[in-house]
């Protein structure tokens, strides 16, 4: 049986963000922008969407008078990511499931 793919993670940029955040403790906005090659505007929108879904935590502060945005994946985000990878596998190899 095919499992439903989580629509939140089924966007390329949001999936890239979550894949990066699952591999680290926490990451700054500039790091995510650099690694995903996304524009600041698009990245901000997708981060907000992930935050609204409860998949990531975002903390905002200042460093040397510049705004600093730090993102961290939540337990809900980790579970959703694991479920998403499982679903992807079931699509690619349906007999295994």
């Amino acid at each position: 049986m095919f499992k439903d793919l989580d629509p939140v993670l089924h966007s390329q940029l949001r999936l890239a963000i979550v894949s990066l955040l699952i591999s680290v403790e926490e990451a700054e906005f500039t790091f995510l922008k650099e690694k995903t090659n996304a524009t600041s505007g698009n990245l901000s929108v997708q981060l907000d969407k992930l935050k609204t879904e409860g998949y990531i935590d975002i903390s905002k502060s200042f460093r040397n008078n510049y705004p600093l945005t730090v993102c961290k994946i939540t337990k809900k985000g980790i579970n959703a990511f694991e479920k998403y990878v499982d679903s992807l596998k079931s699509y690619l190899n349906p007999k295994a499931k």
């Binding site: 999936l15 894949s19 699509y91």
Partner: peptide
């Protein structure tokens, strides 16, 4: 459809690899 799923798995692997090299 299957191509997209494969692309997404490849994207996940790429991102994890990128993050792994960070230290």
């Amino acid at each position: 459809m299957e191509n997209k799923e494969q692309e997404h798995l490849a994207l996940i692997a790429d991102m994890i690899n990128i993050a792994r090299k960070e230290y």
